[in-house]
């Protein structure tokens, strides 16, 4: 239950970080650490290099852009939860971030980290997908925008390249009505299944390798959720249908 051996890097600028990511083999970016540190402690992840971005100044802004809200890589989930700007422009994000773990975890965890980690049962990737947002990835090669629809590639997998740093996530203004519902065995746990409604768009999480868009009239069609100690596939499908009804009742 101690991290494996790694080489530690603490760059102080984004350019320095991109240079490191371009030159190092098998490097992992460490932001809030609320997912990566448990993986290291369990030794489920054994990167040769850790690139800690917490020493980079001015990368924790939450600001309005293109009629939406941009959240930079080091903006903590707690800051997003408390942000009046987020509450007014994207109240769906305010509601979703409150479902992420516990406040003590959110004090350290970042929104961009949750998205880059891409846990299939995580709320924030599904919110980004439902809203049709994007992320901005920076590397020595330049900067590119990745739409949410092309970002999530598989379980814990994204289309962000190893030499790229996710510098910002952009969430469009939330349409009305919006809702996010999930079911978990214990408060703050990852959801067995969850639904996000943004206007007429529905996204599901916890029921496929990535968050997925679905038809509100038949939300469980084509899904093959996994089975584990906490829920059977049938129960997960039932939750999807029940939570979708609840989200679209408003």
């Amino acid at each position: 239950m101690k991290p494996p051996r790694f080489e530690y890097h603490a760059p102080s600028t984004v350019d320095e970080t991109c240079a490191l990511l371009a030159s190092l083999e098998d490097a992992k970016v460490l932001a809030g650490g609320q997912s990566l540190m448990p993986l290291l402690n369990f030794r489920l992840a054994r990167p040769a290099h850790l690139v800690d971005i917490n020493r980079i100044g001015g990368l924790d802004r939450i600001y309005e852009r293109d009629r939406g809200v941009a959240v930079q890589a080091l903006a903590r989930q707690a800051a997003v939860e408390d942000s009046e700007l987020v509450a007014s422009v994207c109240p769906l994000l305010s509601a979703a971030v409150r479902l992420v773990a516990h406040r003590v975890i959110r004090n350290r965890g970042t929104v961009c980290g949750s998205i880059a980690h891409a846990d299939p049962a995580s709320e924030l990737p599904a919110v980004l997908l439902a809203l049709g947002g994007h992320v901005v990835a920076r590397s020595k090669r330049g900067e590119r925008k990745i739409e949410a629809g092309g970002l999530f590639a598989g379980v814990f997998e994204t289309s962000i390249a190893p030499d790229e740093l996710l510098v910002e996530a952009w969430f469009p203004k939330s349409p009305k009505p919006f809702a996010i519902f999930e079911e978990s065995r214990r408060h703050g746990d990852f959801a067995l299944a969850g639904v996000v409604r943004a206007g007429d768009t529905l996204a599901l999480f916890g029921v496929a390798p990535t968050p997925v868009l679905a038809d509100a009239k038949d939300p469980s069609r084509g899904l093959q959720p996994s089975s584990d100690l906490e829920a059977t596939p049938e129960f997960r499908l039932h939750l999807v249908r029940a939570l979708t009804l609840k989200a679209f009742a408003a």
Binding site: P3, Y8, A10, G33, M37, D52, V104, N107
Partner: peptide
Amino acid sequence: TILLNGAPVRSCLMLAVQ
């Protein structure tokens, strides 16, 4: 749980160097 700059965080999910 400890306080980092006054806010509670998990000390097992941080490296001491951080």
